[in-house]
Design a protein around this nucleic acid. Structure first.
Lengths: 324, 324
DNA sequence: ATGAAAGCGCTAACAG
DNA sequence: CTGTTAGCGCTTTCAT
């Protein structure tokens, strides 16, 4: 392995000089800088991560924590965005899954393997938040829990997002809107995003004087059919259910209704679902991952908690909504 | 931070003694072992990862490398399986994406951040394989490249998998089979799995004397329809195209054909696709992740290359196939 | 069966 | 602007 000492010898300077050209924490004369840089390139030097972590008390690694409940969904878009953003700040990403539970977080924190935490998919009452507080390491939540004091969270403003859906449909002249939401269990579990979007939906529909109804949907044929049967004349549907979107579209077509013509459907879902033909208010996975990393980097540099940061929703107009 | 010295002081023994009760590399009297263990628990000691890596020249971290091409698919099932398996062997997982290119692999290897590599989604001619060789660190490929000498690879036996699909349909009495495969570009790019399954399909159909045809499919309506139009009387379809599966099923239904009754469809896809009603030869993501980790652990312990390990396909019978 | 001590490669405080 | 040096916390060799 090539060490700092090797580089120093090669460049005829002291170790610390090499260190300081690398860290930039000290003024270095142009001449030595060049000699050192040359030696570094020549020898192919890379600082030893462990030694660096030991001496500096910083590992330059972030832990990305998958929800503790053993549900098999990994928001890939966001994971990639997190890794890319972390690299842009010279950090790497360690993946932690729910299997190990809170112990996993304690382990990597106490062993100084990571400098901070990114919690994915945070729910209203999330075990990980307590662990984060206990550990005292910087952390950023993706998703908003019930209590946000002393925390930093990023999420889509689901209330505004649902309201935006209603607005769009109202502008198109629809007078009755039906929300096909997540499975009942999701609301009960206290998922922040599901409940907040339901609130936004209900409130905005009331403000605009629209008839509004809400159905939970677990994706089963029965629960997909239920809202359609109950509202045979409804012309506007909002689907906040990633897996239910396709079945709902299929069911509408089967009933001979032309989506984007005599019936409008708008989805609240990650962009990759729904494909190219469904009007959506997309979950900005890339931006959420990026913002989360940036907020964490700021915290590592001593910035104070930022509270709950809600990203403004945007309408992604495609072919599935039309005038009433 | 609680250090080895703290524990040693607390237990009235030497540092090295604490170390050896932890590592088990030396006989320790029952009495001291208890005292030390007690001190460890009492103080909540966790060894410092960086210090350990520095002294032992092992980081206990594996790099999981996402394909370098910037395609946005992360096989979540497998990632989770890899992390879980790695933890079972006292290792953590660092996620590397394509963004950084081969430089990322060099960086984490040379800085001793990781002990070995797991390459996901390896193609026939994969840039990462060369980098792996150059670095000289242990690595396991998930997917099989053109040259496997001096390597260790895990993958589903796609040739056998496709043959198994053909067998199943032949047993049901079908005499003509149609393979709806991946996008043309995937075959051209030299994806190992796509080409190998095509081989298995062609060969077995020939052996059994079945009429066989193959279509590439990019998921567009045209390419989904094409095979159905060309073979209006065909009763057996094999779909090796994750995203194309749903559209194919829809298109068949739209034409009034009852899947699982007058037409049979079998999918070669990860288990989560197709849902509960499609007969599949599933990609064993969990097992692949687990095997890959185990092989890598063995390599870290000095085991020789294992070559290409092909997992036997299994038929997962559901409702979408029926007698001709 | 246990202890003492020399590094591992880097950072940062101190000295000039 | 540059050099010297004392650790960081753990592993391992050498003693006993």
């Amino acid at each position: 392995m090539v060490t700092l000492a090797d580089v120093a010898r090669h460049a005829q300077v002291a170790q610390s000089t090499v260190h300081y050209v690398l860290s930039g924490k000290r003024p270095i004369s142009e001449d030595t800088r060049r000699r050192v840089q040359h030696a570094i390139d020549e020898l192919g030097y890379h600082p030893h991560a462990g030694a660096r972590a030991l001496a500096s008390r910083r590992s330059s690694v972030l832990a990305l924590v998958h929800p503790l409940r053993p549900e098999l969904r990994l928001p890939m878009r966001m994971v990639l965005s997190v890794v890319t953003s972390a690299r842009a700040h010279d950090h790497d990403v360690l993946l932690l899954t729910g299997d190990e539970g809170p112990q996993g977080m304690r382990r990597v924190a106490r062993s100084a393997l990571v400098d901070g935490f990114l919690l994915m998919d945070v729910e209203l009452y999330d075990e990980r938040v307590g662990v984060l507080r206990e550990l005292g390491l910087p952390g950023v939540l993706i998703g908003v829990p019930a209590q946000t004091e002393g925390l930093t969270c990023v999420d889509l403003d689901f209330e505004a997002a649902a309201a935006l859906c209603v607005d769009h449909l109202a502008e198109l002249g629809h007078r009755e809107v039906v929300l096909i939401g997540e499975a009942a269990e999701v609301y009960r579990r206290g998922s922040g995003f599901a409940n907040r979007s339901l609130d936004g939906f209900t409130r905005r529909a009331a403000e605009l004087g629209l008839a509004a109804s809400h159905y939970t949907c677990d994706g089963s044929p029965e629960q997909v059919e239920a809202p359609l049967l109950a509202h045979p004349a409804a012309t506007a549907f909002i689907v906040h259910n990633t897996l239910g979107l396709r079945p709902v579209l299929d069911a509408l077509r089967t009933r001979g209704r032309a989506v984007g013509a005599d019936v409008s459907v708008i989805a609240l879902a990650p962009d990759e679902f729904g494909g190219a033909s469904v009007t959506t208010v997309p979950l900005p996975s890339d931006e959420m991952g990026r913002r989360a990393v940036e907020l964490l980097m700021a915290k590592l540099d001593g910035a104070p908690d930022a509270g709950a940061i809600l990203l403004a929703p945007e309408l992604s107009l495609r072919g599935s909504t039309a005038p009433a």
